[in-house]
Nucleic acid binder design. Sequence first.
DNA 1: TGCAAATCTGCACTGAGTGCGGTTATCGTC
DNA 2: GACGATAACCGCACTCAGTGCAGATTTGCA
Lengths: 200, 200
Amino acid sequence: MAELTLRERKRRRTRQAIVEAAVGLFEEHGYEGTTVADIAEAAEIGTRTFFSYFASKEELLFPESDSRLAAALDAIAARGPEDRPADVLLRALRDVNRDSDEMVSRMAALRMRLVRSVPAVRGRGLQLQFDAQREIARHLCAAYPDELDEVGAAALVGAFVGAVTGALDVLLETAGDDPAAVSRRLQEATAAVLRPWLRE
Amino acid sequence: MAELTLRERKRRRTRQAIVEAAVGLFEEHGYEGTTVADIAEAAEIGTRTFFSYFASKEELLFPESDSRLAAALDAIAARGPEDRPADVLLRALRDVNRDSDEMVSRMAALRMRLVRSVPAVRGRGLQLQFDAQREIARHLCAAYPDELDEVGAAALVGAFVGAVTGALDVLLETAGDDPAAVSRRLQEATAAVLRPWLRE
DNA sequence: TGCAAATCTGCACTGAGTGCGGTTATCGTC
DNA sequence: GACGATAACCGCACTCAGTGCAGATTTGCA
């Protein structure tokens, strides 16, 4: 079943070791207080080798951004015949957030903290999000060729994602760290803002 | 009237020289093909001095982001008694875009091209936009204390800015470089997406 | 004129990231 | 099990962005 060659298994183990070393060091000394050389040493690899696993120091923090995008695309693909584009999008965003109930993980919590505190990490995060948005818009446009053109789809997706991102930003600033409460208030706030679209 | 000390005049002149040198070099060799040392040499200053004018190479490209934010805040401050939050925001976004009819300038055109082609520049641009968004939301919330809480305001602003940004991204990809046409189609697309808010 | 403050700049440094080349480990095959 | 191909590892020397410092120069102001 696990048809993994030794090479691949080893590579995964090393990759995991790098991530764990990095998470530990980031928690201890902060992102900017940790050099790639530190991480490499802790993971027992050469500094040069680090860059054959991750293209940059930031990349380390965004390994599964693809899986969140995939979840959103799945939600579009699995749309029902009654669904309007806005319904599909809202479900997609919920699915993505549900997936991130793995938010309990150390990695995800750390990433969220760093996105909010380290400019370089925030820039990278926003960039990835923006790229994902574009991809989602493309698929949504393809799913509703009669109702949306490319520009309209991009605007719609941008509006939804922007609302969620903006609300989440403020929520994390004010609310405590209780993930359930944050999730609930996020649902409330976005539902309130997006209501004009959903009833009609 | 121009009560500028010699020091300040000189400093402005140098700053302008840096910008012009950089724009020329970026157009000729691309952003990543131009080093800070190249820019400094072309502007006839020491490399070290560059960093006393701009904190980083990217900063060079976003000098007046403050003025666009100010335009948006002005629009909020100048709201009429009949205006709903969404109306104010729409006008704010229009004002910001109108200001950027200085888009004819070399600098702005170059920036737009680089934002779309150079990851580091895009990251920085998105980050500045996000920060501006937060500031706008704060003011909007203060202007409508009965209707918006902080989270709701952030969600609303995020939705509007996200719609415009998403639409503009696709537009610039597909449409030609005619600024008037882009501007018109942008208005159409965002108006279509945001319609649910504006009639009610 | 003269003193204080701001500015300019070279120098030495750190840290991210790349290209190259040699070494070692793994793979598939015989 | 041996063997050639391939992939991974990793040191070295390099480029570039950015910082701290300290000395020289210029400007502001009394």
